[in-house]
């Protein structure tokens, strides 16, 4: 399974890199969705259908809205001169990546094996959660019972986002 995950992760990284360098805005949006749909397959491989459903639905809606937006704007990317300071940026990025890999290598040695070992809190959630909450789907039981505050915050964040969109995209009030 780790081999399949690695292949999908490499594909996602390639899609993200192509999205940055694509000449056409539409192809950039579509190649960016490779990342989202690859994540769906990763979730399915890791036995997380709940996350997979949310991810695939949200990714599809976002792609539809983004395509509808992109079709109405200028799709060609304006030509920009190469930045003379670009080499310094690339060198800094490479140094940071090497440093992060060095410390990650040291940190992962102290972790449990992949897919094994649960935290103390997760153990408490798993043991008898169906009897405690009455919900057969454990994820919903955790989301709406043990972590009700968190879910209320998520719902409120969505409302706030909508209010922000309505405030920004208003022409009449600005005049």
């Amino acid at each position: 399974m780790e081999v399949a995950l690695s292949v999908i992760l490499i594909l996602m990284i390639l899609g993200a890199i192509f999205a940055i360098h694509a000449k056409d805005l539409l192809s950039a949006v579509i190649s960016c969705s490779i990342v989202g749909y690859g994540l769906v397959i990763c979730f399915l491989l890791l036995n997380a259908p709940d996350l997979a459903i949310v991810q695939i639905v949200v990714e599809t809606i976002t792609l539809v809205i983004m395509v509808a937006v992109v079709l109405d704007c200028t799709r060609e990317e304006p030509f920009t001169k190469p930045d003379p300071q670009g080499y310094i940026n690339i060198a800094a990025a490479v140094i940071i990546v090497v440093a992060i890999f060095f410390f990650l290598k040291g940190a992962t040695g102290s972790l449990d094996k992949f897919g094994e070992g649960t935290l103390r809190m997760a153990k408490y959630y798993i043991e008898g959660a169906a009897e405690k909450t009455g919900s057969a789907n454990l994820v919903t039981g955790v989301v709406f019972d043990f972590r009700g505050y968190d879910t209320l915050g998520e719902a409120t964040v969505l409302v706030t986002a909508v209010i922000g969109v309505l405030t920004i995209l208003r022409i009449k009030g600005k005049k």
Partner: peptide
């Protein structure tokens, strides 16, 4: 509360 999914999806 029975199958994967829920309010958000």
């Amino acid at each position: 509360h029975l199958t994967p999914g829920g309010g958000f999806a």
